[in-house]
Amino acid sequence: MTTYIAGWGVLGPGLPDARAARAVLLGERPYRDEGVRPPVVEGLSANEARRCPTSARYALDVGWQALRDAGWDPAGVVTVLASASGDLEIADKNCQALARSEIALSPTLFHNSVHNAAGGYWGIATASQASTTSLSAYDASFAAGLLEALTTVAPGRRCLLMAYDFPAPAAFAAARRISAPFAVALALTADRPAGPCASLSWQWTRCDQAVVFAGMTDAALEALRVGNSAARSLPLLQGLSERRATTLSWADAADMDWGLCVTLSFAP
């Protein structure tokens, strides 16, 4: 089955949105790590926005970007949220509280500590009751999320994939390195959008060495790709920006040679 990419969004260091990312990935302007724009929290009441954790901020920002790019209403759009490590800032605060002699966890930090917190806030922000699935496959989380999204899409069943990760707090820095925040969203549909569009065909297969990605040309972008599981999407974003037919694969793990293999093409 062919799946169409109706829109996308991105937020990372020096990549404040899809338009800016496209210019960088096309080589129209050099990549510079200018820090990360604060994510925009849209759709929540003031109270919910105050409680909204970092994970949900990133998901909401790129999710809305992709919906706008696709021209979709969020109602009825199934969501998949992929994150390797979730919110370690919250885990750090909770574990600190649990290590004290007088234990008092924050109720808000506890309910925000669930891996699907971002999915919960997405529902509250969009009022969409469509199914939402949050998952992790460690550093293979982007491809696992894409696989879940691709198997979810069906005629009349749109899917929005949101993948995000951000650096761990100091206590985790030696045990879990995530180099910089990065979030990406893809709006996927089985129904061909009007006008020129990108499409994907895909399979789970042995990853042929011929299509193993050599790395981003720019060393700083390559460091970003390797340093954050969500940024493993950068080669796909590059293909989307260049509107160039290409085949990409994501091996499931360093010691597993099977993985998701995707061929990107463009219909006029």
Partner: peptide, 30 residues
């Protein structure tokens, strides 16, 4: 951290213990 605390740890451990090599992922929706 990766092998214990991380959400994927139990899925990764399951597939390695069983020796299966298909896609592996952990769903975490409370």
């Amino acid at each position: 951290y990766r092998e214990t605390h991380n959400v994927f740890s139990c899925g990764d451990f399951t597939r390695r213990l069983l020796g299966v090599r298909g896609p592996a992922l952990v769903v975490s929706t409370a």
